[in-house]
Design a protein around this nucleic acid. Structure first.
Lengths: 205, 205
DNA sequence: GTCTATAACTCGATAGAC
DNA sequence: GTCTATCGAGTTATAGAC
């Protein structure tokens, strides 16, 4: 019972902190704002997480590992590679669309100079990229796809999926003259576009 | 003479401010740091630009319009479309590589919530995207390229060029295990990769 | 665990001398 | 135009009551 109460407050804080940090960045976020959003007092934040820095560390770490897991695990089923690819693009764009500020947050924090907690977390996360490389190389060996560089494939997929989300304000304004609706329709239609582009880079002729 | 002195100080400030704002973001930047980098006193910043906000406005506006100009003007020559495309990718990747934090800065500031100066500047900049659309449509009419959506083409090119620069810390760590050199070699080799992908989306069969 | 009050500090901005 | 000194608002963090 007591334990549950603790978890509840802690979770409320983490949820609120995530929203504020993601929207405002580590430098722009205010402890007062996080406390307000969590419906608690400012000093409770320090009681649970000691400092703003430590709270940020926790939030970034959780948010980052969730995002990475979603990216790396999805190719691990036994289905046909092209089916997996299509599903991945479909699901991933949906996730990105619903969490549009997360990738910006991650990338932006990782690019900050100075002793960067985000980079420290990234380095200590030990992501195993070779899993993806092995899957791709198996497909190549089996003659299912062209002999391509798995690193290029990976970067191409992420670029085409993430950039339009991250650069949304720019695209919305320049291409769609600020019409939010048009941007969203266009984005939905882009799933096929992205799949076809990636397919054309790996398909055997 | 006096005028020249003014310009020099103003320029020194703008240059220093650009570096600090680009590296730290508007929220993370410190007036003291800008003053130090410009080799002047903090109060001089206020003398020239009144407030941090106004200084940011100036810096963002200049940086943004430089970037946009580079993107939109490059397709405006009379050369063959594929040649223009290849040159653009080549030049643009070089520019991005030398100014790796600029796109992150622009995109990051544009994504901030609240009354956002960056967005105001974007809206008032009146970028004419139709120039690009017209060029593409002419190529289509002339039978030089496939009947494609110019908006998709535009976003594909930018995605493939900008994302790898912006996501550099992530890519460098995940794919190249922190080896800076390997990332740079890989990026140089990607020029062809990007050109070939884009070419395959527009070439007539 | 949670709150109120407040200390300690950072930072943008201004006053005023030169 | 440029500098030194300093104010004052805003923020993180802590002390201490309940």
């Amino acid at each position: 019972m007591l334990e549950k109460e603790i978890l509840n407050t802690e979770e409320k804080i983490l949820e609120a902190a995530k929203e504020i940090f993601v929207n405002e960045g580590s430098a722009g976020a205010r402890m007062q704002e996080i406390a307000d959003k969590a419906g608690i007092n400012k000093s409770l934040l320090h009681y649970y997480f000691r400092s703003k820095e430590k709270l940020f560390e926790k939030v970034f770490s959780i948010t980052f590992s969730k995002l990475i897991t979603k990216i790396l695990n999805i190719f691990e089923s036994d289905e046909d590679f092209f089916v997996k690819l299509e599903k991945f693009i479909e699901n991933y764009l949906d996730i990105l669309f619903k969490n549009r500020f997360i990738p910006m947050f991650i990338i932006s924090e990782l690019n900050k100079k100075g002793n960067n907690i985000a980079v420290t977390i990234l380095k200590s996360s030990n992501i195993d990229f070779s899993i993806f490389v092995n899957i791709v190389q198996k497909e190549i060996r089996d003659g299912k796809i062209k002999d391509i560089d798995a690193r290029n494939l990976f970067i191409n997929i992420l670029s085409l999926c993430i950039f339009p989300i991250v650069a949304r304000p720019l695209i919305e304004e320049i291409i769609f003259e600020g019409k939010k609706n048009n941007y969203e329709i266009f984005l939905a239609q882009r799933k096929d576009e992205i799949f076809n582009i990636i397919k054309s880079t790996i398909i055997k002729i």
